[in-house]
Design a binder for these strands. Structure first.
Length: 816
RNA sequence: GCGGAUGUGGUGAAAUUGGUAUACACGCCAGACUUAGGAUCUGGUGCCGCAAGGCGUGGAGGUUCAAGUCCUCUCAUCCGCACCA
């Protein structure tokens, strides 16, 4: 029979659908696995990154089904978000129809790829039922004080009168009309994620067994906990007068109190209150004011590229030396970290050093190395010995931090403080295609929560997305409503929510079976059974934000009493990007590979096999058309050679000792592949080497003709390859084994027993030859054999050392 | 700029974590079969060299009997930087 991927795959896809093969059981006494891949934004068509993501999760899901687990492997769509509006602007379409058309198309694509998703739990986050519960949670969080309103700086296009996302700002200009953007201070909603800073940080070590270390490190750095000293710097009288006595001092935070005597200037963020006051009261020249404006309108990343400063003509008094210290504005001082002001020690901080050099400010060293001298021409940032530091002279700089903080505290001029880089999470979006924030602004009651029975607050359908203004704000009627508290005239909040909110709890929603979706977000019983997610698979680009937000929501839901665990994801697998010609696949570069075309030509199994074989999942994947061809040929060979096997409902029993050398070797290779397969799902995720193992087994099988060996091999290989190339494996398994082999496979140790082995022989670490020895050969005999084999290289030399590494090699160290 | 990663044949990659570098595959070369081959099968293939041998894991040093793996410095590429998802 000829291998025909298209008809074979279609046949099994229909079979799986008709048999509801992948719907989880409601029998909660069975052992479960919850396999989740990050759900996609419905951009229109699947791209290779998606194929990689879902091939990985599908392999896990299928593997655990074979192992007898009750598997939940759901899928949905993260369907709110800006691209739907961008498409609407571009094609004069409606975000809703664009989104749901895309979803339908992509669902069909999932089917052709043979992904074993539970179709009955499919959801889109833009569904009203999803919005309903999300809004309800938002209200809960508001009541708990975890959601609040404050001013925040946004990118504002003065021409389109709209807020721009960072990606819509190109070189400081609006992407649509090229107008220079300005930063605008607007009221926005924030989640108080900082209330959980410590817990989010403390939870990281518990994830060490299941999460990649790099992700934990990135999150740790992102939360950015640091201990240090906080103190006030007081203006001298002259400066105080300049400021009309409005400000006495400002607050600074430092993680290096040991360098306090080295302070030679201080720097404020351009957004600092004092700067704002000086601008508003014309205490600075027009020229300086416009420089400050320019600085403020520069993105935080661009600001760090070139250090810029502006002298304010003010001085503060050093808290210990009582000397005058000039006050500057510096573009690298961030308003939202610490107090937006720093003490600068150019002698011992790289940034401060560059800045001082540029503006010719003094550099006062106060720490020197324990031995020798510090390098000239750069900041000395290492630990050392204090000098020029008053009573602290001679102390170890690291240890002096404690003493200096103590000194500040005893004299009541400063205190020990902990700071975090983590900021509260701004969730307001001034856009249409998102979940409305369920609040109402009432003239008499102020900001009022919507009543839960009125949820969901749905979006109006009759809008035109033009890219100008906020569509909900502009809508003629939508925002007008009665106050839920007093019944008086009120207006709805027109901000919608960040789409990261939806993706912060979708994994909980998946636990609920569809018949209860109207009634509740999820049930306690279902959550208890399915959570946590056993394997979570997605792109490394989500290492920080999405994963941190999902962890935050989990802790909040716990504190709201909805769930009983602290962390949502037991194990995390972060996949690398899919590249072509060394670059990320993108439409603009024209280097995309269309999954549909690939499936049409070779079938889904080929696409899946190539993707898992070409690189380990955590690494970048370089696309290669001829390697895809190779994957296809392997499957075809695998299918063709199934003609060597005989029909059976049970695995053949083989007497290993009666086999010849080639047969034994083939069997050993097959079982080696099985051992590797089990390792993949449990710890290593190295599908590529597991597949290589199967290929080795196939090559070895081909050197012998024993039908039992062939049959046993296919019984096992069709089982371990089924998670990867399911269609062809189901076909073979149903043709020959009544599908009985698609189940847990046991390793037979007897096939690994050998009586001799090969050892490498090295001279001075350089491999020269090899010897064959009995498995339990003693050391002296091994050395003797090594001497014989390496005689040529030992001539005229003296052996100074002989190293035997059991089961590996012999190294002879020679001289002369 | 800050934080995180990656770098091994012509190509994608492997190496049980300090122990025979290049498994498996692509490509290439040769052969077989064939009217034909962009099908299939068999064999070969790190680089230099006729050979002996030498060299070889981005680069430069170091530790070790032994380094792709550990240390120091350095270069290049990629991811994230809070309104892309």
């Amino acid at each position: 029979m000829e291998y025909n991927a298209q008809s074979l795959e279609k046949k099994w896809q229909e079979y799986w659908t008709n048999n509801r093969s992948f719907e989880p059981s409601e029998d909660f006494t069975k052992e479960k696995k919850y396999i989740l891949s990050m759900f996609p934004f419905p951009s229109g068509r699947l791209h290779m990154g998606h194929v990689r993501n879902y091939t990985l999760s599908d392999s896990f899901a299928r593997y655990y089904r074979q192992q007898g687990f009750n598997v939940l492997h759901p899928i949905g769509f993260d369907s709110f978000g800006m691209p739907a509006e961008n498409a609407a602007i571009k094609n004069a379409s409606h975000p809703k129809s664009w989104t749901y058309d895309n979803i339908n198309y992509m669902k069909a694509e999932f089917k052709t790829l043979g992904f074993s998703f539970s179709k009955e739990r499919e959801l889109a986050t833009s569904d009203e039922l999803y919005t309903k519960f999300e809004q309800s949670f938002i209200i809960d969080m508001f009541e708990k004080g975890l959601l609040y309103r404050k001013k925040g700086l946004l990118n504002w296009c003065p021409h389109d009168l709209t807020v721009l996302a960072n990606e819509q700002v190109v070189d400081g200009k609006c992407w649509r009309c090229d107008t220079a953007i300005v930063k605008k201070d607007m009221n926005q909603y924030y989640f108080k994620i900082t209330q959980y800073s410590d817990e989010l940080l403390a939870g990281l070590p518990k994830l060490e067994t299941g999460w990649p270390k790099q992700v934990l490190t990135m999150q740790e750095n992102w939360i950015g906990k640091s201990n240090g000293l906080e103190f006030d710097l007081f203006f001298d009288d002259k400066s105080k007068n300049k400021l009309n006595s409005k400000f006495e001092s400002f607050d600074v935070f430092t993680t290096r109190p040991d360098t306090i005597y080295g302070v030679s200037y201080t720097a404020l963020a351009p957004e600092h209150d004092i700067v704002t006051y000086m601008i508003e009261n014309s205490l600075l020249s027009q020229e300086i004011i416009s420089d400050i404006q320019k600085m403020k309108n520069t993105s935080s990343i661009d600001r760090q590229k070139e250090k810029l400063g502006i002298s304010l003509g003010l001085d503060v008094i050093h808290p210990l030396t009582r000397k005058k210290v000039p006050v500057w504005i510096a573009n690298f001082v961030l308003m939202d970290y610490g107090s937006g002001a720093v003490m600068a020690v150019p002698a011992h901080d790289d940034r401060d050093y560059d800045f001082a050099k540029k503006y010719n400010l003094s550099i006062n060293a106060v720490i020197k190395p324990f031995e020798g001298e510090a390098k000239v021409g750069k900041a000395y940032t290492e630990v050392g010995k204090l000098f020029n530091s008053g009573e602290f002279d001679g102390m170890n700089s690291k240890k002096s931090q404690y003493n200096i903080i103590k000194h500040f505290e005893e004299n009541n001029i400063g205190k020990k403080t902990t700071n975090y880089k983590l900021k509260d999470w701004g969730v307001s979006r001034q856009r249409y295609w998102g979940a409305p924030i369920p609040f109402v602004h009432c003239n008499s009651c102020g900001i009022v929560m919507e009543k839960k029975e009125n949820l969901p607050i749905s979006l109006p359908d009759d809008v035109k997305i033009t890219g100008e203004g906020n569509p909900l704000e502009k809508h003629p009627t939508w925002k007008y409503c009665a106050c839920p508290t007093c019944g008086g005239d009120a207006v709805r909040e027109t901000d919608t929510m960040d789409t990261f909110v939806e993706s912060s709890w979708y994994f909980l929603r998946f636990c609920a079976s569809k018949q209860n979706w109207e009634k509740e977000a999820f049930s306690e019983e279902q959550i208890k059974y399915w959570m946590k997610v056993d394997h979570y698979i997605g792109g490394i680009e989500h290492a920080i934000l999405h994963l941190l937000y999902a962890r935050f929501f989990t802790k909040v839901f716990r504190d709201l009493g909805y769930i009983e665990f602290d962390e949502p994801f037991e194990r995390l697998l972060t996949q690398g990007m899919v590249l072509k010609d060394g670059a990320k696949m993108s439409k603009s570069k024209g280097n995309t590979v269309d999954p549909d075309a690939l499936i049409e030509k070779y079938g889904a199994d080929t696409a899946r096999l190539f993707i898992l074989f070409a690189a380990p999942p955590t690494q970048e994947l370089e696309w290669n058309d001829s390697a895809v061809e190779g994957a296809y040929k392997f499957i075809k060979r695998f299918f063709d050679r199934s003609s060597n096997i005989v029909k059976t409902d049970t695995k053949p029993k083989i007497n290993h000792s009666s086999l010849n050398k080639d047969e034994k070797f083939a069997r050993k290779k097959v079982y080696e592949a099985l051992v590797r397969a089990n390792d993949v799902y449990n710890k290593k995720y190295t599908f590529n080497t597991m597949i290589a193992g199967v290929m080795e087994a196939m090559n070895a099988l081909n050197t012998q003709t024993n039908t039992d060996v062939w049959t046993e091999a296919y019984w096992i290989i069709a089982s371990i390859m089924e998670p990867i190339i399911p269609h062809v494996c189901w076909d073979i398994s149903s043709n020959y084994f009544s599908l009985n082999n698609l189940s847990k496979q046991n390793v037979l140790d007897e096939v690994f027993i050998e009586d001799s082995m090969t050892l490498g022989v090295s001279i001075n670490g350089k491999r020269r030859c090899e010897i064959r020895v009995k498995i339990d050969e003693n050391k002296d005999k091994i050395i003797e054999l090594a001497h014989e084999a390496a005689a040529k290289w030992l001539e005229g030399k003296t052996i100074v050392k002989e190293i035997v590494v059991p089961k590996k090699l012999v190294n002879l160290v020679v001289k002369g």
